[in-house]
Design a protein around this nucleic acid. Sequence first.
DNA 1: GAAAAGTAGTTAGGCACCATACTACGTGCA
DNA 2: TGCACGTAGTATGGTGCCTAACTACTTTTC
Lengths: 187, 187
Amino acid sequence: MNNEPKNKHDFDSAPSLDQARRQLARYSLDVDAQAVLVAARLMEAGAKLGSAAEIHFGRFGLSTGRYRLLAELETNDGELLPSQLADNLGVTRATVTGLIDVLERDGLVSRRKSMQDGRQKAVVLTEAGASKLRDMAPEHFMRLEAMVSSLSLEERSVFLSLLGRVTEGISALTDEKKDVQANSKKR
Amino acid sequence: MNNEPKNKHDFDSAPSLDQARRQLARYSLDVDAQAVLVAARLMEAGAKLGSAAEIHFGRFGLSTGRYRLLAELETNDGELLPSQLADNLGVTRATVTGLIDVLERDGLVSRRKSMQDGRQKAVVLTEAGASKLRDMAPEHFMRLEAMVSSLSLEERSVFLSLLGRVTEGISALTDEKKDVQANSKKR
DNA sequence: GAAAAGTAGTTAGGCACCATACTACGTGCA
DNA sequence: TGCACGTAGTATGGTGCCTAACTACTTTTC
């Protein structure tokens, strides 16, 4: 046909330790290159996983966000308020509105006005929605397992623990001003 | 009253092992819950890190993509072709065009027509661009280091290695059809 | 009981990224 | 020499998420 399909990120990218060292040396910064590398690799892994997940869920006619919403409904007896969904999924209410719009159009969820509170509209998982989750479950979870299949049980445990600690550290990127001088021990 | 994910994702969310187990039990799937948890947590960490990075770079008037482009230019003597940038950054040429548009408007890079090949336009890091990188380097790298400061050197090394293996496994999500088990139904 | 303040959901507009399709230029091959 | 074909960069339109502002409905307060 026409151009190159580039569908598969080669993503060799993988920044190297040397690269990090050179970057730090350029400005004579007293920072551990390994630390910078961890940050860069994690960011890269996150981006890669995110786009892979979109492809994965796309096979079922869903996006990552819409799948997560459906799954969240499923684990809560098939009914939640949009604001609860927003909380549980860690996205804004506005985003939830958008997700529901599409899911409702596709018949996977429906909106039902609440009687107790006229402002609320419960989101309900339809039979089609439950069925969609049921159908995709085997392949979905198999693929997730395959993703980490190269790690032993022990390693998975270690990885989870380390990942958890790094995840907590992410706030270091967003925290208010910290002094950039010699002091690097904070929190 | 602060349970809105404002600019500061509290992101308590953190799916639990029990949650994963329940999900698997619902469909009687023979999948390791720990594996599912690793996948979920990594995806979450990636999303969280991504948005934190946007906030972080936003402080300097940049986005993650634009910063990466500038840094890539810097490590290549301040000059590259858009297609090389796309390759190195792992994004499409179209995305690079957009990044350059903004960076050029802000005076951080400039486009220069190539003389060898009339189709090419080299992207050049301007003095303002180099200066921007220089100015933000201390805070930027300090924050990166702070992010992983709770890990020892040894742990960082382990984490990198495990992360690398998981990253390779991500292709399990996008591969055509897996055959990890005797499973092949629909489609 | 009515204005003020708070809350639920939606709308509007923006950013980053993508796939697709287009223009301009270069190259291979008859 | 000529012209199809490949390649570099760009424009267009779509997705997913965001913030901020809006509407509609409570709840509070006097």
